[in-house]
Amino acid sequence: MSDTNTSMVEKYRNNFLKEVEANVEEGEWVKMCMQCGVCSGSCPLGPHWDHPPQELFMMIRAGKRDEVLESTSMWMCTSCYNCIVRCPRELPITHIMHGLAHYATRLGIEPKNQPTRKFAQLFWDNLARNGRVNELKLGISLYFMNGIVEGIKTALGMAGIGMGMVKTKRMNPMEILGGHTVKDKKGFQAMIKKAQELEAARVDN
């Protein structure tokens, strides 16, 4: 358990709803859910979630901190925005799902083996380096996400498609050596750093 996590538990003691309201993006909306279940019914991946959004909101109100933050559910969200469009109470459900996932990550208690979480991390690392997504590297790191053996297998399986993409100039093999960047890479990185500082300062308060 990370220090932040311990301190947050301490700070909000038994009031998880207040913790969510203060720390999760759009978290102040959670109390407005009226448990109609339209979000859960509208979610295209709904049946695959352990706890659909409506249930997560109820769990937050019931103070089930660990079950919520360690849950894989909000990581299942694909941002299709069906729930937001349909929610009669106009809750920004998609944003709250991402907010919860982000908060769990910040506390270091997110489900480590959830594939979406892994992909999200790879994507961010890839993007934050040059300010551009390097698709070749992202693809390769994705293949090797679950170990070398599986990585080689997947890479071989995808070789034909890869060659085709190179031939039709959809993929540049030279990207493997660094790859393209934004014009002002230094500036970009400074910007990201500043944002992280601001975020950290906000959390500490």
């Binding site: 109390k31 009226m34 109100r61």
Partner: peptide, 14 residues
Amino acid sequence: FYRSGQQKGVIFTK
């Protein structure tokens, strides 16, 4: 009125 109750922090448990 229900919404106002929720905004004021009344917890509704089904």
